[in-house]
């Protein structure tokens, strides 16, 4: 049960070593930097040191309580990330798959719209553009 913010990349297998021991179901989600336009060089992610760690922990604890998780892990990177690099992961462990899937989905919806991260796309030409929040991400939160 932990939340972490870091600039370094991560290895999913290493993160999952010993995770959720005794659980009947483990679900993981990994977000990866993608290039929708064919013109992006990297993503820069800014965050709010102090608040970020607290918010991620709060959301993890809320998910654990709501879905009866036996373990959870949230890892989110910040700084400059190249296309194809992993941005973040969540892992959830529960007795049954339904709770583990739902908790991972719940955590992603919260992280998208309520964790203090801001993405900026850096083009191959060097131009930077802040990524706008999506109404669909905000709408997704209302499911919970």
């Amino acid at each position: 049960m932990s939340a972490r913010v870091q600039t370094a990349s991560f290895d999913l297998a290493a993160e999952l070593a010993g995770f959720g021991a005794g659980a009947g179901a483990v679900v993981t989600f990994t977000g990866i930097v993608r290039d929708d336009t064919g013109a992006m060089a990297a993503l820069e992610i800014e965050h709010y040191p102090g608040m970020t760690e607290r918010a991620l922990s709060d959301y993890g604890l809320q998910a654990a309580d709501r879905f009866g998780l036996t373990d959870w892990r949230i890892l989110h990177r910040h700084g400059r990330l190249a296309v194809g690099e992993p941005i973040m992961m969540v892992a959830t462990a529960a007795r049954h798959r339904h709770a583990a899937f739902q908790a991972a989905d719940y955590l992603m919806d919260w992280l998208k719209s309520r964790a203090p991260f801001w993405k900026r796309e850096i083009g191959r030409d060097g131009a930077a553009r802040w990524v706008d929040a999506r109404a669909s991400d905000e709408d997704a939160l209302s499911r919970w």
Binding site: Y48, I87, M88, K112, S113, F117, W118, D132, A133
Partner: peptide, 10 residues
């Protein structure tokens, strides 16, 4: 107090 645009994590 912190001010910022809508968050774009995940």
């Amino acid at each position: 107090v912190a001010f910022f645009p809508p968050m774009t994590g995940g």
